[in-house]
């Protein structure tokens, strides 16, 4: 279980997180929604320890995110970054197998390559893609390679940062379906950050809305239409008028 208690984070005078309290159960898929600049990415970076919170506590199965042994802690996670964040200097298969090629669980190159090709197949890419460089791939293919890298070592927890940003509706649907299938088949805990309401409906078990530095609403995905929360209503229907200022 991932548990955040009263997490605060500021960058200079900009107080981004003002006391986040949330729990994500094992095997649950939580989607975090909220306007741009509300701190959604900061939230998952805090969980991963990429950003240190100013106050509060983050635990994963009881282990403190800040004090846990880093390598073992991070080995439990997979992450799909918004822009893919593929390593430009490495071919696709080495990107996917990156974790398998170093560290404690290092595997022989041939075995790592086979695993990478298997994961590429899992996300709908042909083995020929394995030897291409990331710059040779389309945006949708890069996202799939990023997804393959995120699941390469069968992590227990997967984070998806804007998985459908910049993709056309068909490719967005493909990525959403892949995420749902993979999370279900692996039994992984997932936290997804998105603005895309189609992704929310296809991926989420639960939804949390971040606004004003706190979790404004949190509940099962089938209750978002009937929540009665004016902030959530405005956001999910994309209305310009409402309590959320359109000029931020």
């Amino acid at each position: 279980m991932i548990e955040l208690q009263n997490v605060h984070k500021a960058f200079g005078r900009n107080q981004v997180l003002k006391g986040i309290d949330i729990e994500v159960a094992r095997g649950e898929s939580l989607v975090v929604i909220g306007g741009s600049g509300t701190g959604k990415s900061v939230l998952i970076k805090c969980i991963l320890g990429l950003v240190a919170p100013d106050a509060g506590r983050i635990t994963v199965d009881g282990h403190d995110a800040l004090t846990a042994e880093r390598t073992a802690f991070l080995a439990r996670f997979g992450m799909l970054f918004q822009g893919g964040a593929l390593f430009d200097s490495l071919p696709v298969w080495q990107n996917v197998a990156f974790r398998l090629l170093q560290g404690r669980g290092k595997r022989p190159r041939d075995a790592a390559r086979d695993t990478a090709i298997g994961k590429l197949r899992r996300v709908g890419l042909k083995p020929e893609v394995a030897d291409l460089m990331p710059a040779e791939l389309s945006g949708g293919m890069q996202k799939r390679v990023g997804l393959a890298r995120a699941i390469a070592d069968d992590p227990e927890i997967i984070f998806f940062d804007e998985p459908t940003a910049g993709l056309d509706p068909i490719m967005s649907g493909v990525i959403n379906a892949l995420i749902r299938e993979i999370v279900d088949e692996m039994g992984a805990t997932a936290i997804t950050i998105t603005h895309d309401m189609r992704s929310v409906r296809e991926i989420a078990h639960k939804v949390a809305m971040l606004h004003g530095g706190v979790i404004r609403w949190h509940g099962p995905v089938d209750r978002i239409e009937t929540s009665g929360d004016p902030y959530l209503d405005q956001f999910i229907h994309g209305r310009a008028d409402g309590p959320i200022e359109s000029v931020r």
Binding site: A85, F87, D88
Partner: peptide, 20 residues
Amino acid sequence: AEIGTMKVTEQLDALVTLST
């Protein structure tokens, strides 16, 4: 330029999440 671009495109963060 290479490392700066890696930072901007979150490749440095990706390295950390891959336990590197």
